[in-house]
Design a protein around this nucleic acid. Structure first.
Lengths: 108, 108
DNA sequence: TCAATAGTGAAGTGTGTACTTCAGTAATAA
DNA sequence: TTATTACTGAAGTACACACTTCACTATTGA
C-alpha cells in the first residue's frame, strides 16, 4: 500500500495552508488541470504549481502530465493516513475519558 | 455543540506544527500540566504555553488553571470537526471514483 | 515572611515559506 | 514555421510564526 510511505508531518503541513485546502476542495469535486485550479484562486499559476508539488508529496493529490496539460486528482492514500491518525488518537483518549471525568470532578 | 464554533482553518494550522502534534500525542495518553508537557520537548515552558494557546483556540485541547498549575487535556470538538471534514471530502470523491477510473483508463 | 515553583506577557530574532516576476521548455494550433 | 498555450525552474521579497530572554504575577511551602 502507498499509505505506508505517507509522512504524517508532510500531510498536516500540506493541509495547514488554506490555499492548498481550497485546491483539495476543488479536486474532491473532480479532476482539474493546473490552470483550471488557479483560475478562481487570485494567485499565479506558478504558485498553484508549487502548492501541487507539496500536495503530491504529501500523498493527498496525484498528477499526471499528458501533453502540455497536467491533470490533478485526489489520492486516497493521504486521506486514509489522516483518518488512521485521528482514529489512533481517539482510541487512546476515548478509553480514558471516564477516568478523566473523575479527575475533573475532583478538581472542581 | 461546541463543534459548530470550530474553525477548520485554525484546526489544520494547529496540527501543522510537529511540536503541537507532539503535545496532542502526549495529552491523548492523559492530562498533564504545562511544565510536564515541556519537559521532554527541548523548548522553553514559554513556547509550550504559546503552543497551548493555539491548540486551545483550535478546539483540540482544553485547559483549566487550578492554583498555579494549568491542567491540559484533549477536547473532542476539534477531533470531531476534523473527522467530519475528512468524511465530507471522502464522500464527495468516493462517488466519483468510478468515473475517474474511466477517465484514467482513457488516458493510458 | 521569604523562597521556590508554575505560568504568562512583551519584545525581539531568525528561519521557513507563500508569493511574485522573469525566463525558459514543450506541446498544440494556425 | 510561427504563435499561442500550459506549465516549470530560478531567484528574490515579504511576512508569518516558532522560538528565545527577561520581567513579572500568582500560588504554595518552609
Amino acid at each position: 500500500m502507498a499509505e505506508a510511505r505517507i509522512d504524517i508531518d508532510r500531510l498536516f503541513h500540506a493541509l495547514g495552508d488554506p490555499t492548498r485546502r481550497a485546491i483539495v476542495d476543488r479536486l474532491s469535486a473532480g479532476p482539474a488541470s493546473v490552470s483550471r485550479l488557479a483560475a478562481p484562486l487570485a494567485i499565479t499559476v506558478t504558485a498553484v504549481s508549487q502548492h501541487l508539488a507539496v500536495l503530491e508529496q504529501s500523498g493527498l493529490v496525484k498528477t499526471q502530465k499528458s501533453g502540455r496539460v497536467r491533470l490533478c486528482h485526489i489520492e486516497a492514500a493521504g486521506f486514509n493516513a489522516l483518518e488512521r491518525w485521528i482514529g489512533e488518537h481517539r482510541a487512546r483518549w476515548d478509553e480514558r475519558l471516564d477516568r478523566l471525568g473523575d479527575v475533573l470532578n475532583d478538581e472542581d
